[in-house]
Amino acid sequence: MLWNGRRVPFTLLGGYLGAGKTTIVNHVVGNAGGRRIVVLVNDVASVNIDAALIADHDGTTLSLTNGCVCCAIADDFARTLEQIREMPEAPDCVLMELSGVGEPARVAPWANTTGFRLDGIVVAADADQLAELCERPFVGDTIGEQLRAADLVMLTKSDIAADGGSAARRRIRAVSSAPILDVVDGVIDVDVLLGLSGPIAVVGEADRLQALPSLGGTRPDHHVTRLVELGSVTRDELSSIVDSLSTAVIRAKALVRCSDVEPLMEVHVVGTRRTVRPRPDLDRARAVQAMVVITVVE
């Protein structure tokens, strides 16, 4: 079985031309923090990385000394994903940059195929241009569809927007209740974009519980990570706790033993994407009755 049945978290990054997707990708690749990330981009030449980090470059694939790999999206998604599946070892996660007119909702099924599990849909929006783009002939509705599909919105360039991005925020709020993160120069905590590194292992080890609040790199000006104690809960109670999380929650993760069901329950939240699902494949001893929650500071 591929990668012993492991399914790699797969994040989609959408947004129109000029929204800052490439800048975000460059930041992630340069700040991977030990993660082996496969980054799928439209144009490998756009990946701007310190030459010293490049281990190998064959035109369509860029291998980095930090373990990350950047691949051009080949002729179609099927072949591109098959290239990843042919890797002998599973990467830690996959980040796919969509084209400027890519509609994440239509691409999302690919992120949930053999070897992958859709982690979340992140859409970048240019604070200075978004309102105008939404009115533009031919593509205005496409940009609306992108925002509608977003679990998280990364609002870029609000530092140069004359109104600080307030018109763009109104546009986003007209179609989406997803948390909006201000991102300047692509600087985004990789835990926020791609999820907590090794989340299940770390969350599941009781002796590291004390370390949890620091995961996700709390930045009081931007986002706050905290621990929510769950105690004894039923599956339904756990679901309603997750559903009632504030709209400011950008990520939450937990592996919980419920009082009324046998398998461990995994909580996975990326903005508006909130799932609670059984993980019968995991050892119950790994459960921790607490949930890591990252909240955006608006």
Binding site: A78, L81, E82, R85, P109, W110, T113
Partner: peptide
Amino acid sequence: PPAMSLARREMALLF
């Protein structure tokens, strides 16, 4: 196509 890709070997043969 996403679901069809589950037939990995057959889709690879087609490509």
